[in-house]
């Protein structure tokens, strides 16, 4: 029953969100090699502790978010917009 503070919508129940995946993957360009893509798509750290993951505020503003969460306690430390320019705008206008 965790709550996530969406930068646009405020603190909402996790049932409004959908989990994406590992937020620290840098997806390679489309013309990258098969091996590079293989690593990006299939190789994952199984983190016991803080990890950055993507969530989408599906039943809200539909933003994709980068959520820093502890996998042991489910404590959330930070929530940012995944879109780097939007996040910058949010910070500038705070």
């Amino acid at each position: 029953m965790i709550q996530i503070s969406c930068p646009f919508c405020g603190k909402r129940d996790h049932s409004e969100f959908s989990y994406g995946g590992d937020g620290q993957i840098n997806y390679p360009p489309l013309d990258a090699s098969e091996d590079t893509w293989h690593d990006a798509v299939f190789l994952r750290e199984n983190i016991y502790g803080r990890q950055i993951e993507t969530w989408q505020h599906l039943y809200g503003c539909r933003s994709w978010l980068l959520v820093e969460r502890d996998t042991r306690t489910h404590e959330i430390f930070s929530v940012k917009l995944a879109h780097s320019d939007w996040q910058k705008l949010m910070e500038e206008n705070r």
């Binding site: 997806y27 993507t54 989408q56 599906l58 994709w64 917009l81 995944a82 879109h83 939007w86």
Partner: peptide, 13 residues
């Protein structure tokens, strides 16, 4: 829909 949004917001901003 969610995938298109993900690509536009996370991969190709």
């Amino acid at each position: 829909m969610a995938t298109l949004e993900e690509l536009l917001q996370t991969r190709w901003p």
